[in-house]
């Protein structure tokens, strides 16, 4: 899941209306997929983390994501 990051220079200077619409469409899709991930994969992570917290166990970020 790529939730909260953007990349500088990911949006190049474009001048035609079609290119701008294409760019915006791509970005909208990306944001939609981020939202979906947040509510699915993210929710699973939050549940797992809460359960581990309750059991006083450690959630290993480099292993369990």
């Amino acid at each position: 899941m790529r939730t909260v990051r953007t990349i500088d220079r990911q949006f190049v200077a474009e001048d035609s209306l079609f290119q701008r619409l294409q760019r915006d469409g791509r970005l909208l899709l990306r944001i939609a997929s981020m939202m979906l991930s947040y509510f699915t994969i993210g929710a699973r992570t939050r549940r797992l983390y809460a359960a581990k917290q309750g059991r006083k166990e450690i959630f290993l970020v480099d292993k369990e994501l």
């Binding site: 899941m1 790529r2 939730t3 990051r5 944001i31 981020m34 947040y38 992570t45 983390y49 994501l65």
Partner: peptide, 16 residues
Amino acid sequence: EFFSRIAVWGTVRHIL
């Protein structure tokens, strides 16, 4: 990545 996933929706919506 973990930080992104456990963030509350209130912050995520501003980021998006």
